[in-house]
């Protein structure tokens, strides 16, 4: 049995967790928050024309693969990605890479991964995990899933199904692995570029559905939910907004806490102490997101009457605060 010396570490978000583990294995110990921040993965997007089982796409981060791609430039290395037309090809390629002793990241559907707890098994295709070896006797893959506490095993049949699931964001067997060695970046430049990319997206995306304005648009959509005839549907809708900022998978508060950890960590490296204070401010904003979540959950459980106006005003307050915050962050990173 060939198991390279890989140590599993739990993270809170799949993609940043995978990349941080991958980089750590290849000699550049970087925290999950750092991987998240350096690739400018924080965002807000409300895309009503993309429907997930009838509900609009609400996202608190950049689209899948942004972290994998975004780390290449600051860390000066390339990631090789491959997709496959047929499952057979994809399985053979993964097995060959593993036999070479490589650590391979891959995209899979959560629904078909048997080790996932049943309550998490929705048809979400953009989950990321690491495979670090194969049990030669049973052929099972040795899996390091960053959202779980312990390493897992997964039978080849199930893995094939998960990797070649179809539907929105179909993984098509995507695998990725580093080519070349990542190197310690010029922190000052890399951090500034990453932060300014985030503030640009949050403040100045031409499309009003993305960034701070996206939160305002979402507030308006929440306010207009029909509640007279059908409260169940409105509850589904607001519950969905909260589910997207979940604790396991984002570090809570819609990734705001994780980004705050990044700011705190990067401040001494790029000699900008002001970032520590901004990190504290962002933690507070994360707390406000949790307050919104709590208010929503109480309404879903009928502890409070459903009041879409109040939820909308909470969202608007969040938008205002985030706007002030990102303007300040933009200045601090200049």
């Amino acid at each position: 049995m060939t198991v390279p010396s890989f140590t599993h570490q739990q993270a809170s978000h799949c993609e940043s967790g995978v990349m941080s583990a991958l980089l750590r294995h290849y000699g550049l110990p970087i925290s999950e928050a750092m991987a998240f921040g350096l690739s400018s993965a924080l965002c807000f997007a409300y895309l009503p024309f993309v429907r997930l089982s009838g509900l609009p796409l609400v996202s608190y981060r950049m689209p899948p693969r942004a972290i994998v791609r975004g780390l290449q430039k600051p860390l000066g290395f390339r990631m090789c990605s491959e997709r496959f037309r047929s499952p057979e090809e994809g399985i053979a390629r993964l097995d060959r890479l593993l036999d070479d002793g490589r650590l391979v990241g891959l995209q899979a559907s959560v629904f078909w991964l048997p080790y996932m707890p049943p309550d998490f098994r929705f048809h979400f295709n953009a989950h990321n995990l690491l495979v670090y070896g194969r049990d030669e006797a049973s052929g099972e893959y040795l899996v390091s899933d960053p959202v779980l506490e312990d390493p897992q095993r997964c039978a080849p049949v199930d893995m094939a199904k998960a990797r070649f699931a179809r539907g929105a964001l179909a993984p098509k067997g995507l695998i990725y692995y580093p080519a070349g060695m990542p190197s310690e970046p010029d922190w000052e430049r890399a951090a500034r570029a990453a932060i300014r990319k985030t503030t640009r997206i949050m403040l100045r995306t031409p499309l009003p559905l993305i960034g701070v304005r996206g939160i305002e648009w979402l507030a308006r959509a929440v306010e207009r939910l029909p509640t007279a005839a059908d409260t169940a549907r409105a509850k589904q809708y607001v519950g969905h907004i909260v589910r997207m900022q979940e604790e396991i998978g984002t570090g809570g508060g819609g990734f705001r806490y994780m980004y705050a950890a990044f700011l705190e960590e990067v401040a001494p490296l790029c000699k900008r102490p002001a970032l520590v204070g901004l990190g504290a401010e962002l933690v507070d904003i994360g707390d406000r997101w949790r307050e919104f979540a709590l208010a929503t959950a109480r309404m879903i459980r009928d502890r409070d009457p459903l009041d879409v106006r109040r939820l909308a005003s909470l969202l608007r307050a969040l938008a205002t605060r985030e706007r002030v915050f990102f303007v300040a962050l933009d200045k601090a990173a200049r």
Binding site: Q10, A11, S12, E32, A33, D119, F120, F122, E149, K235, Q236, G239, H240, V242, R243, E246, E247, I248, G251, G252, Y257, M258, A260, A261, E264, G279, V283, R290, A293, L294, T296, A297, I300, R301
Partner: peptide, 29 residues
Amino acid sequence: MYARGADGKLALTPSRGWEVEEIVTLQAV
């Protein structure tokens, strides 16, 4: 999740989620 540790620094602390998350997940299930 990320929370302030004893040293006042933000760090990853093990979490099984909180009640609110459970409510919205169960709602979807």
